[in-house]
Design a protein around this nucleic acid. Structure first.
Lengths: 297, 297
DNA sequence: TTATTAATACTCAGATCGAGTAGAACGGAG
DNA sequence: CTCCGTTCTACTCGATCTGAGTATTAATAA
């Protein structure tokens, strides 16, 4: 058998609110917005994605980028499907959390990814031992585990969100493994999702964290104007790491990523902050403008 | 109409020889290795790609990564097809240039991308004027042109290979435009390829240039051991830029990317060079090891 | 021997980065 | 009205990194 297959589109729609990255799901909180590519209505894949998001989530997305195409046999029980996943970013203010959709906290899906209050407990409590057991005497596995989870002195790489999810899946620490393989999972870390939707979210978060440092994507998640603290909190939420405030200011101001508006934001407690806006001209000045994040401790 | 479509796989197989990045094509030098996904034989997309490359090009590829999925209506005249493009890297020494396949110089496809001997003539001679005319009074077009082609003082960004090809396509400076739209292209810069295969190569080269600075991908294109000059020449060929030799040495040696073997390579002319090998341990030591190229950080 | 060529080694100033400290402007409590 | 906690904002300083240039070494060719 060859050739004709069902082609689906999936949307990983991300926003940040209350200092948490969130992904949009259907009301059940388990499935991403998804739909079939309609050959006669959708001239391009991206337009198909936008239509689908409009229909299912009722929102108009701005930034859209193709993430990855999934097509492994194992991922779907009922016949083979090709799923093209897209990443979309929306400002939390614009996004309706109505009955049509729900927002799921990404760190409920991947509790081991949020290092803002130090190394997440769950790693020591529920992950390390299982990883060590899986490693055994294999040098190959040792290297893989060290690199993906930052063990044995290897630094933690925030961008390896996908690698970590896939490793946990392989070892059987996430619930989806059980569904897919039939065999029971050892543990069920994080909230599970339908099919390989959690894998898609992991792919999206990984892409986002990677791009943060060389493309001004954060601004897609913020309103027109914002304070530098707001900007920093959104960046921290995505990166899952705390940043040094004065240095962050220096980076974005002197780096020409933002410009002050002169208007002050009246805040709760403390000195009023100036409102800034994204400085589009930076795209012309520097080849890869972004928030060159530090390597997390 | 919805759902079932033809799904194809395309391979962008890259190697570097004679200081030129090359891409493997079928003997006609116009088409990439491609084939249908065979649902019952290929458990994963990546395995399908490997099988296909084995069958059509007769080589076993090492490094493989998914590039992009193309599915626009316009790209195929005969019914809609989804094409999943993969990037593969092979050491030039291993790759057979037999009758089954040909190697095409990437800079024959994209002559404006090779800045090793300064700014390519073709830009001033055949591109700038057409770009300017297209810009007209549009500020939006002005910005896009400046960023993609490094005009008006904006620095050239080597990684924007795809953006440049797509802009040239839009304006009608490449031959494929004519084929696709029916209307004649203004110019036909670079060697054309079948369908959107040149776009796929552009995607691959862009990805490769991007990754060069934070992943040790160069070593996939080199033999086990190599001199630092060889390494530098391969890096330069891919990046399309000349690098400062002493600084390059410092980067890779002190950065821990390579280790000396103690063996000296007898060369033609000049002092013998030491042979080095890739130092795998660097993956554990630093989060994003690569050749931090100039203006890309 | 000497010139040529390419590999390797060193130097130095400016930019950047991580970390820390100090002052400024608000609201609220006493 | 003053003090205090809070948050925004402004400097400082040393270590490291980067870009660029220069010098030395070890081979071959004339």
């Amino acid at each position: 058998m060859t050739g004709n297959l069902a082609v689906r589109l999936n949307a990983v729609i991300v926003s940040v609110s209350d200092e948490r990255p969130r992904v949009m799901t259907l009301p059940d909180a388990r499935a991403l917005p998804a739909g079939d590519l309609e050959t006669d209505r959708d001239p391009t894949l991206e337009l198909a994605l936008r239509r689908l998001v409009q229909e299912q989530a009722g929102i108009q997305v701005g930034y859209v980028e193709q993430l990855y195409t999934f097509g492994d046999q194992s991922r779907s029980p009922t016949g083979r499907t090709i799923s093209i996943a897209y990443l979309a970013l929306v400002d939390a203010g614009l996004a309706p959390a109505g009955g049509e959709a729900a927002w799921v906290d990404c760190y409920d899906l991947f509790p081991w990814e949020d290092w803002r209050d130090g190394r997440p407990r769950i790693i020591e409590e529920s992950i390390v031992d299982a990883l060590e057991e899986w490693v055994g005497d294999s040098a190959l596995r040792r290297e893989r585990v060290d690199i993906t989870f930052g063990l044995s002195g290897t630094p933690w790489d925030g961008a390896r969100v996908l690698d970590r999810y896939e490793l946990l899946y392989e070892i059987g620490l996430v619930a989806e493994k059980e569904t897919d393989s039939g065999r029971p999972a050892i543990r069920k870390l994080g909230e599970a999702m339908l099919l390989d939707h959690r894998r898609m979210v992991a792919t999206g978060l990984a892409r986002l964290r990677g791009k943060l440092s060389y493309r001004p994507v954060v601004f897609e998640l913020l309103p027109e104007t914002f304070t530098l603290s707001q900007l920093q909190r959104v960046a921290e939420a995505l990166a899952g790491v705390r940043l040094h405030k004065p240095n962050f200011r220096r980076l974005v101001e002197r780096g020409g990523l933002v410009e002050g508006t002169g208007i002050a934001e009246q805040r709760t407690g403390g000195r009023p902050a100036e409102l800034f806006r994204f400085r589009r001209e930076v795209l012309r000045e520097r080849p890869r403008p972004g928030l060159g994040l530090p390597s997390a401790r």
